[in-house]
Write a protein that binds this DNA or RNA. Structure first.
Lengths: 223, 223
DNA sequence: CGCGCCTTGGTGACAATGTCACCGACGTGC
DNA sequence: GCACGTCGGTGACATTGTCACCAAGGCGCG
């Protein structure tokens, strides 16, 4: 019970909203649970609700008409799908899709409630615009990286990001190539080079970081 | 006089707003004129107003910390700087800058008026969110192009875009390389190849399209 | 178990693109 | 005329992308 009545307070960006706004969010939203590996939205599959992620992560990626894939960004617990949903509402024909990477718990807010909140609460407006701004500046950074950053630097950076607090990443060369928008062979060669230097260890379907310091040094060098 | 009182009606996205909203926009905004080549916003230079472009174009580009530059998008007459301005307000430390490519006439709307309009008018909200969505989907497309599209295809596409209705483009290889986020030498080689095929003609500081059909065929082939 | 079949990763050859160093041609200001 | 900066050309080389193909591991199924 307390789960459904207090999720707003556990949401970093929303906890400072006015009390009536919180109540509106709580009473008019539905908490949903989605298993991992589900496609939440994608081409021809627009969601009718705005989602606020309470737990889990959603991966947003894009399939090019050339058949290539690239991961655009991730939505973590405490963030909202506002922009993606808004995009879908405005432009049907875009190719990005959102996939749950883990089991996800989210609060679904209907479109009209969202519009109502934007109209009535200045702090909610700030929250929404801040989310948009953050996303756009992140996309700017991503364009810069894809266009100008060396691949070894980007891979080292991505390995550290994916490892988080663990030392072993359960992933394949293929998945890593989608993360960076490159080819599987290229990832294989770079990982071999990292392994040759003793920075990582590989086995089928997993990469283990041995020397995080050196990886970080490479990643930060030109970032 | 009629210029200052009717710009809202000449603005495609705003002409269908409610009458009171239009009045608010007109009375609380200032029409400004800026010469070409001016940096409207950039690092450490946040504008305090939202701009609605009445005439001219603004080029938004980014300087990487590696020294590379890339053009992110352009704002044309009839569009607004909403998102760029919003971004600047939220995150000071980003590296994009906006430069007027021609003499520009714009309506400047103070931040509090903008906020007021978002609160009061549903159609204005739709206008703003549509602008954000369009920008984000365009950035998605750009990431796809930078990551996966061949350079000859992108260059052919860009040449056609820059030519618009004319046949001769006044630009340098250096500027074209910034448009695509690549190196000047690469542009030089590609243009030589296009010239060898008889598709274009070059002279110092200008490119003339001779066979737009072939260029378009290359550009559309994988787009 | 043996047998397909898919996934995962390795490899070499080659193409496309990026980087670097350097050059000459052109234009501008003095 | 001369110095200087901009513009574009060139060759050598490094990095990255593409393609074709291969071998090992895992999985289901008779």
């Amino acid at each position: 019970m307390s789960m459904e009545t207090e999720w707003v307070d556990r949401f970093p960006g929303l906890s400072r909203l006015e009390e009536p706004v919180k109540q509106l969010l709580l009473t008019r939203s539905t908490v949903i649970n989605v298993p991992g590996g589900t496609t939440i939205f994608g081409p021809g599959n627009s969601p009718e609700n705005m989602l606020f992620l309470l737990d889990g992560t959603v991966r947003v990626q894009q399939v090019s008409d050339t058949g290539h894939e690239i991961v655009l960004y991730r939505i973590h617990a405490g963030q909202s799908c506002v922009l993606t949903t808004a995009c879908l509402l405005a432009y049907e024909n875009y190719s990005a899709e959102g996939i749950t990477e883990t089991a996800v718990q989210a609060a679904a807010v209907p479109r009209d409630v969202f519009d109502d909140l934007v109209a009535k609460s200045k702090s909610f407006r700030n929250f929404v615009f801040a989310a948009f701004s953050k996303r756009i500046t992140d996309l700017f950074l991503m364009i810069d990286e894809v266009a100008f950053q060396r691949l070894d630097v980007r891979l080292a950076d991505k390995l550290i990001e994916l490892a988080a607090d663990k030392d072993t990443i359960a992933t394949t060369h293929q998945k890593l190539s989608v993360e960076l928008g490159t080819a599987r062979e290229v990832i294989s060669r770079q990982l071999q080079e990292f392994q040759r230097r003793g920075w990582i260890e590989q086995s089928r379907g997993s990469v283990t970081l041995l020397d995080r310091t050196q990886l970080a040094r490479l990643a930060d060098h030109n970032s």
